[in-house]
């Protein structure tokens, strides 16, 4: 048993990994073999074979914890006494938590809008230019970077040092300010601008993603549409405004909503840059802080449920779109 649980050497770890993959393949193979008799096996057995394992995992890994959290949001700090809607009331009355709500709204409005707008303009700009692939790869690059690395990267942009003889700026932005003769600034400390400087990091990460998807859909605009427009004398900005944007509207909506969802859940950027201090906290971050640092599980759970609630309309919209496209089919 220990052999399966404690892998210490490299060879052991890799062996365990191969074993896990083999074991998984074996089990799935056995299940599939068992259901691969369409004539004799009833339909529900087939469905069970295909859907059973993933649905089981989802029940254990997502549904059960989500229900526990929902119940927890009506309980006290240690998750025992029933307190009704006290936790929710606290969220909407405590001034610090209201600030958290305000910040969350700023994030969820600004990040999708700016990232998508930037991605759209950029995708249009680089489309069919000489260095298209390189330019796109460079803009997409932040997508491949973990939150840990992103935090370290931006440290060297925002870092503040006093403007004093013998001390050099090590943050790029402050160095630029000093070069043009201005005082260095505490970018992450001064409220309320600091929230915007942190939002900029999230935009930096997501713009490349928006750009990639929108670029793909711009390329998929049928040529007859652009040709027809061109024959009508439309070009430049007009082409962008009246042809490109309407043609990729579905993709735009998708990018906006999905960036919005992930923005609601984001926590590691705020955590990394300020730890939620100086009035920069957002719901996902506050959930963390309440649940794990302050041991206030009830309030934490209420914040998590609030997160669910905020995402629901977006998911509902997507589901409706899904239904519509099913009907078209």
């Amino acid at each position: 048993m220990d052999w399966f649980l404690d892998a210490e050497t490299t060879a052991h770890k890799l062996a365990l990994m191969v074993l896990a993959i083999a074991l998984f393949a074996l089990v799935m193979g056995a299940i599939l073999f068992a259901v691969d008799k369409p004539k004799r096996v009833p339909q529900w057995v087939v469905v069970l074979g295909f859907l059973g394992p993933p649905v089981l995992l989802l029940l254990v890994g997502l549904v059960y914890p989500a229900l526990r959290t929902l119940v927890g949001s009506f309980q006290g700090r240690d998750g025992e006494d029933f307190v009704g809607v006290d936790n929710y009331a606290a969220v909407f009355t405590n001034p610090e938590l209201l600030l958290v709500l305000r910040n969350t709204v700023l994030w969820v409005v600004l990040v999708p809008l700016v990232a998508t707008l930037f991605g759209l303009v950029y995708a249009y700009l680089v489309d069919r230019t000489r260095f298209e692939n390189l330019a796109k790869a460079l803009v997409f690059l932040p997508m491949a970077i973990s939150g840990v690395a992103a935090g370290i990267i931006w440290k060297f942009v925002y870092e503040y040092r006093p403007d004093q003889a013998g001390i050099n700026q090590i943050g790029l932005l402050n160095q630029l300010l000093v070069w043009v003769g201005l005082e260095p600034r505490q970018f992450l400390l001064n409220q309320p601008q600091n929230t915007f400087f942190i939002i900029a990091v999230m935009i930096w990460i997501n713009a490349g993603f928006a750009m990639t998807v929108l670029s793909a859909s711009i390329k998929a605009i049928p040529d007859d549409i652009t040709e027809a427009a061109r024959l009508d004398g439309v070009s430049g900005i007009g082409m962008f405004r009246y042809v490109t944007v309407p043609s990729i509207r579905p993709a735009l909506v998708v990018v906006l909503t999905t960036v919005a969802i992930s923005t609601l859940k984001v926590f590691d950027i705020v955590y990394t840059m300020t730890g939620g201090q100086f009035g920069t906290s957002v719901i996902a971050n506050e959930f963390y802080s309440q649940t794990f640092r302050q041991g206030n599980e009830g309030l934490g759970a209420a914040l998590a449920v609030l997160l669910f609630v905020l995402v629901v309309p977006i998911i509902a919209y997507n589901v409706r779109q899904l239904r519509l496209s099913e009907e078209i089919r």
Binding site: L58, G61, L62, V63, P65, A66, T69, I261, K265, F267, A284, F287, Y288, T291, A301, A304, L307, F308, V311, V312, I315
Partner: peptide, 9 residues
Amino acid sequence: LQIVPIQVT
């Protein structure tokens, strides 16, 4: 189920 924040689990 995408709406379930991982932290919750």
